[in-house]
Each structure stands twice: as structure tokens, then as C-alpha cells.
Amino acid sequence: MTTAGSAGPEELRIAADEDVVRVRQAVRNCAQRVRLSLVDQTKVVTAASELARNTLIHGGGGLARVEEVVDGRRRGVRASFHDEGPGIPDLTLALADGWSSGSGLGLGLSGSRRLVDVFELDTEPGGGTTVTVVKWTR
């Protein structure tokens, strides 16, 4: 998988509510550029919205990076979310449906994982969290 695309990666700071909306728009634009189907666009934008909100609320803010990727003939959109927050102490729990450390529904991580093709989570207690997702064209 290589990074491609004329547009290059886009980096967005996540520090407030409006930034979650901006991340959604960046992911949607990228998904449209690589010609994901409307349903797949909707799925990856929804996943990005959940993850960006996690970065803001649980990570205390951070960075999103949105870019086009290519693998042979497939194209895709990759979005990663990084924060320097407290990290996730119990991953199994955090990825379970319905579990929430905050006031949410507990669908953020588990739900967004189901909406994408690749879901990578890198976290360490006290060492921040990075979540990377990819959605490929079919």
C-alpha cells in the first residue's frame, strides 16, 4: 500500500467541536476523489466522525491525517487519529460494544471498526493513542 494522490495528505488539528466537522468534510472529499461508492463514503465519514470525537473527548485533542492510498488497482482513503492523551488501559473492553468510559453509547471504537476495511489501534497507558482506518474501493 502506497500513499498516492495529487492532493497529498491533509493534516487537521482536533481541538474543538468544529474540528470534528472539518475532519468529516476532509474525509468525505478524499472519499469522493478516490470514487468510493456513496454507501462506503458514508461509512468511512461516520467512522471518522466517531474517531475524531474520541480524539477530542478521550484524548484531549490531537491530530487527524487524511490521505489517498493505492494498492494495485484499488484506491482508498486512509485516516489516522493521534492524541497524547491517557491511552486506553483495557483494549478488549474498549473494543466491546456498549462499553464506554464516558457518557457516550460505547459504539465509537467497536462501531467504527465495523465500518472500515482496515482498523489499527496503537495505544499505551499514559502514552497516547493512534487509530488508523482505511476504506478501499470495491
Partner: peptide, 14 residues
């Protein structure tokens, strides 16, 4: 509700 939104909601688990 748009069809793509409905499909996504179900998969999200909502």
C-alpha cells in the same frame, strides 16, 4: 433518512 445513512447506522450498531 437516506439509504446510505440507514445502512451505516445498522452496521455501526445503533
Amino acid at each position: 433518512m437516506r439509504p446510505a445513512v440507514a445502512i451505516t447506522l445498522v452496521e455501526l450498531g445503533l
